[in-house]
């Protein structure tokens, strides 16, 4: 039941002068229950790749197997509901998708679409409202009375309320303050630990280092590397060649020129430990 991409290419506006390769022969496999990060520059194909996961975009050539569905260039827009119930996408700034009269109704919109009974949908909405750190009282309010940060939480609750097996997120913490960012990332990490697959599109290398089991690096529509964060961030020269940032800890470690590191530290705790080991000789 893992996610498999086989030779997937996608061309924007084919057969016109504006034709552009969005994805170029991408193949990979993601294991169930893992936390995956997709990194790369703006325009490298990350978002295009993400929209393939629930068939918002269908490949021009190639094949995708995901959550029991096979997506090919011939896949039609009908009968995609089952796929989308299992594979959920959260776009950047998802607070712009809120529309219902009350917060609870908005969170329940997805579950209802996917066949939950009214009561069960609201029950699930209440549960997820709490999970994203909002009080029950907020559930009765209009989503448009809330602060930007609260709206973001409501939007994310709305996508998690039908508990998709695979949760894909595009920069879910962009523009949030540091504390809210931490809470948000902890929520996704917990969700993964409960047995779901999480796919995170991000520029934040500290989050990648901290949470991901597996990293996909995109460049100009191609998948140029897939590996664990440790392996990806080990090769400083390669990162610089591809203009990718480093996590703060390894960046700092790199500046300690006369230190020896047994392993490239990716977290502050490991960094401090390594510094102390060096000092103790």
């Amino acid at each position: 039941m893992s996610i498999k991409f086989k030779n997937v290419s996608y061309i924007y506006s084919p057969e016109t002068p504006l034709a552009k390769k969005g994805l170029d022969n991408v193949s990979f496999e993601l294991k169930d229950g893992t936390f995956n990060a997709i990194i790369g520059h703006t325009g490298s194909g990350k978002s295009t790749l993400m929209q393939h996961f629930n068939a918002l975009i269908k490949p021009t050539t190639g094949k995708i197997e995901i959550a029991g569905t096979t997506i090919t260039p011939e896949t039609t827009n009908k009968n995609l509901k089952d796929l989308r119930r299992h594979v959920s996408l959260v776009f950047q700034f998802p607070e712009t998708q809120l529309f219902e009269n009350t917060v609870l109704d908005d969170i329940a919109f997805g579950p209802k679409n996917f066949g939950y009974e009214n009561e069960k949908a609201l029950e699930s909405a209440k549960y997820w409202l709490k999970r994203v750190g909002l009080s029950e009282e907020i559930g009765k309010r209009s989503p448009f009375e809330l602060s930007g940060g609260q709206m973001r939480r409501v939007a994310i609750a709305g996508v998690m309320a039908y508990e998709p097996d695979i949760l894909c997120l595009d920069e879910p913490a962009a523009g949030l303050d540091p504390e809210a960012r931490k809470q948000m990332m902890a929520l996704f990490s917990d969700y993964q630990k409960q047995g779901h697959t999480v796919i995170l599109v991000t520029h934040n290398m500290d989050d990648v280092a901290k949470y991901a089991d597996n990293v996909l690096v995109m460049e100009q529509g191609k998948l140029i590397k897939q590996d664990t964060p440790t392996e990806i961030f080990k090769d400083r020269k390669w990162l610089q060649e591809h203009h990718l940032e480093e996590p703060k800890a390894s960046l700092f470690a790199g500046k300690l020129t006369n230190y020896k590191f047994t392993e490239m530290p990716l977290s502050i705790n490991n960094l401090v430990k390594e510094i102390e080991n060096n000092l103790k000789g």
Binding site: R84, Q97, G110, G158, V159
Partner: peptide, 19 residues
């Protein structure tokens, strides 16, 4: 752009604009 983005977001939440 905004329209397409919201359409895609709601489609992901199970909304159906075509049928």
């Amino acid at each position: 752009d905004e329209t397409f983005k919201i359409m895609n977001a709601q489609r992901s939440r199970g909304a159906d604009f075509n049928n």
